[in-house]
Computed example of a mutant assay.
Amino acid sequence: MRFIVLGVLYISVIIIKHLQWKNLITDDAGNIISYVNLVFFYPLGTACLVAAAFCVIFRKTAQQQIIAGTSWVMGIIFLFSCATHFWQFFSWEYTAPNAPITLTFPSNEWKTVVTTPHGYRMTVVMKNVHAGISVMSSTQDSSNVHNFDELLTSQQIHYKSGYQADAFTLYPCQVDGFRCAYQDYIATTDDGDEKRSILMTLLDNTHFIQVAAVIDQKYADEYYDEIMGIMQSAKAIKD
C-alpha cells in the first residue's frame, strides 16, 4: 500500500512538473536533458535524499518508515509545485522606473530581469529568452522628439541607409492622457538574427515614453497577440 501511495504521488508530481517545464521540449538536446532531469529525476532524488536524512536523524530506518518518509516529502513537493504552477496564472501590474504608466502582464510567467546593455542598467520584463518588453522614458526636450514627425526623423537619422519608410509606418493606438502610436517591423541584430519588433511611443505635454517589445522571429506568431494585449493595457499613473 505504501508503494502505491508513493507511486501515485510521484506520477502526480511528474504531471505538474511537465506542465511547468513543457516549454523545454524543443529540438535542443540540452533542453531535453534539463526537462528529463527536472520532471523525472530531481523530484524523486530530492524526496529520497530528504526522507533518508530525516530517517537517519530520528533513527527511523526501517524500510516502511523510509517509504513513508519519502511519500511525505513527495507530497510536499507536489503541493509546492502546484502552488508555484498556478501562481503563474495571476496577472500583475508593472510600473517602469521614471515612467508615468503601468502595464498589466497576464501571468507571472513574465518576470523582470535587469540587464546592462552598452554599459547602462535597464529592466526588461521577459516571458522567456524569446520575448521581452522594456520601457524607456525621457523628456521631449532632452530627446528632441515632441511629435511623431520628429520621431520618424530621428529614426531615419539613426538607421541611415537601413531606414525604410514603409517598415516604420505609424499605427494609431489609444492610451488615456497620451498621444499614442506604434510601429511593427523586423529588426536584424548584429549576429544576423531576425527579431519582430513592436515599438509603442507615448507623448503627453512633457514625456517621451517608448514601450519596446522584441520577439524572436521564429516565435512571433506564438507571442504576438499576448504582447499586443500587454501594450494595449498601458495606463497613465494618476498623480
Rank of each mutant, 00 (worst) to 15 (best):
V5P: 01
V8T: 08
I11L: 14
I14C: 12
I16F: 12
L19C: 10
K22Y: 10
L24A: 06
T26H: 10
T26A: 12
T26L: 10
T26Q: 10
A29M: 05
I32E: 06
I33N: 08
Y35F: 13
Y35T: 06
F40A: 09
F41D: 05
Y42Q: 09
G45T: 15
G45Q: 09
L49Y: 02
V50Q: 03
V50P: 05
A53M: 08
R59F: 01
A62W: 05
Q63F: 14
Q64D: 14
Q65C: 04
A68L: 13
A68H: 08
G69C: 05
T70M: 14
G75A: 07
F78T: 11
L79Q: 02
F80D: 06
F80P: 06
C82W: 06
H85R: 06
Q88E: 11
F90W: 01
E93M: 05
A96F: 02
P97S: 12
T102P: 01
T104N: 06
F105K: 05
F105W: 01
P106E: 03
K111Q: 13
T112M: 13
T115R: 11
P117G: 02
H118K: 05
Y120P: 00
Y120W: 11
R121N: 11
M122C: 09
N128Y: 04
H130K: 13
H130Y: 15
H130I: 07
S134N: 13
M136P: 02
S137F: 03
T139H: 05
Q140A: 00
Q140I: 00
D141M: 08
D141H: 07
N144W: 03
H146E: 05
L151F: 04
S154H: 04
Q155W: 13
Q156K: 15
I157V: 12
H158K: 14
Y159E: 04
G162D: 13
G162Y: 11
Y163W: 08
Q164S: 08
A165E: 13
A167P: 03
A167K: 13
P172G: 02
Q174I: 08
V175T: 14
D176L: 06
D176K: 12
D184S: 14
D190F: 07
D190M: 08
G192L: 10
D193G: 01
R196Y: 07
R196Q: 13
S197N: 09
I198Q: 05
I198M: 15
M200A: 02
M200R: 08
L203N: 04
D204W: 00
N205S: 14
N205G: 10
T206Y: 06
I209H: 06
I209Y: 01
I209M: 02
A212K: 13
A212V: 15
A213W: 09
A213G: 08
V214W: 02
K218S: 10
Y219C: 01
Y224C: 03
D225E: 12
D225Y: 03
D225N: 14
M228W: 00
M228G: 04
G229S: 10
I230P: 07
A234C: 10
A236H: 04
K238H: 11
D239T: 12
D239F: 10
